[in-house]
Design a protein around this nucleic acid. Sequence first.
DNA 1: TTGTACGCGTTATCAT
DNA 2: ATGATAACGCGTACAA
Lengths: 332, 332
Amino acid sequence: MTTLYDVAREARVSIKTVSRVLNNTDKVKEDTVKRVKEAMSRLDYHPNATARNLKRRKTDTIGFVVPFGSRFVFTDPGMQEQMRGAHDVLTKAGYDMILTVPENGDRFLTDVVRLTRTGNVDGVILYGMAKAGAIVREFSRKGYRFVSLGYSYPHQTHNYVEIDAEAAGYLATRYLLSQGRRFIGLTQEPENFLFLNKVSVEVGYRHALNEEGLPYRSDLVSRTDFTVEGGYRAALELLEQNQKIDALICCSDPTAFGALRALREKGICPKKEILLLTGDRLPLIQAVEPWLGGIHNPLYEQGRMAAEMIIRIIQEGKDLPGVVLRPDLVIT
Amino acid sequence: MTTLYDVAREARVSIKTVSRVLNNTDKVKEDTVKRVKEAMSRLDYHPNATARNLKRRKTDTIGFVVPFGSRFVFTDPGMQEQMRGAHDVLTKAGYDMILTVPENGDRFLTDVVRLTRTGNVDGVILYGMAKAGAIVREFSRKGYRFVSLGYSYPHQTHNYVEIDAEAAGYLATRYLLSQGRRFIGLTQEPENFLFLNKVSVEVGYRHALNEEGLPYRSDLVSRTDFTVEGGYRAALELLEQNQKIDALICCSDPTAFGALRALREKGICPKKEILLLTGDRLPLIQAVEPWLGGIHNPLYEQGRMAAEMIIRIIQEGKDLPGVVLRPDLVIT
DNA sequence: TTGTACGCGTTATCAT
DNA sequence: ATGATAACGCGTACAA
């Protein structure tokens, strides 16, 4: 491996001068610059990032840590969109992204600690969830940098990017009511994805029903994970529980894929007898079922903004106020 | 930040002793170990990874670099499976994974160079493609460590994990022939995903037709990218080109999703009039269309083995012979 | 069993 | 405009 010293010797200057032309931080004579650059390319010199990191006390690397296990994370279109958003911003800003997908909440803590405390990364983006609460508060005390996707603890005011799930539920329900639907089914988010059930789609759903003077019926609401299989089961369950059901709001795209499968198996048209709305309306389901309307949750933007936020937090050295993104309804 | 020195002072030993209990490399008296460990937790000490990396001349980090852009990579189920396989192995082995998704072949080169030459990572997993050829040969000369997913240059004998696409084409075609189909459509892989068209599904497809004494008909073959939209267009094109078409082999799951959409729009049953086979049969399409048979390409295993291979290459300090995985046919 | 002293390859402070 | 030299925090040859 060739080092600064090799280049310095070759160019007959000091290592400081080489360092100067490398980071063009000070003025260096035109002529010297040329000699140094030639020496660098002659020796095929590449600066060592680790030594640089040690000296600068930063790594230009951000950790993206999400629990729930790789099977889910690498399969769920929503997670992918968040990762994609974060990746694009980080890459453009010159950061590397370390992706870590612990199998569960306990590993989550260990992994986050390992990445941050050892100085492996300058900061982390992590999923907002109760388990993260403790760690995140400690981070704030000790000055480790983080941004959470959603809330990590009650009354969190800083360092998060959230999507307004309540608005999503409200928008979807309002639309279905406006279409004359009166028995609107709802598949809810999985519990471990929520923090204290504060910002559930169900709240918006109830709100809209209320405005219309319609009662909330528990036999029209089912909880599911964000998987196709879960959506399938939830839809079958709701169909059985309430025969009058004439609309269905799905909490994610995979859920909608599952619900579609259930309806089709039963010979029910997902646009007529039951008016189906999907949950995130990301590229895949848009391409496969272009006719299907639903809530568009800006998951790409969430990842993007989380990345922008962590970068700013690192650069400015202080926490930043949280942000809430608005979903919108897309009807085709 | 607390360092070895702080701990050493607190425990009234030398830094070498602290280092010893940290990596438990030498014998240390029971009593001393305890004192040191207490000091560490009292001072909330966490060893600095960067300094450690600098001294050990490795980072325990692997780069996963795939061109084609984030829009594709974070959306395509096949890429996800490869990433998932690699992630699982790397994580378990104590490596971090840096994910980098350049927009195109040129950025690809820059990114790979940046990661490796600067010592940011101990090795890279990268997509096998013509563009990678030059870089990979240089790596071999200079001792940088890599594994490619597929071939990176002709006659590559080492450091790759490939899937036998020819076998996939052969298996699928044979099956369809055995079901009495005679006009079998094929959507081929996109050109930039192949290296010199050497191991295309088309080769196996031709082979199987040949065995049956059937002619190869170019109006039954269409090239497409790995997207839903591409599959949709390809299917429509083939339906138009050859009215007798009675089977269709898709080169990926998104392609199959697209083809399904096309068939359904035309009122054609994808099991009867046209016998459809999907391309990878990964978890998502399995869940959404469980009745749909196809080739199962072991993409998770490919990612897994690539990770295992790069780890061994690093540890053993020498290149390893390439591996070819076999796909298999799954009929439901 | 424990400690001293040096080196890893940079950046940065002070001179000149 | 340039250079000598000290850090950064850890591992380790060598000494005790």
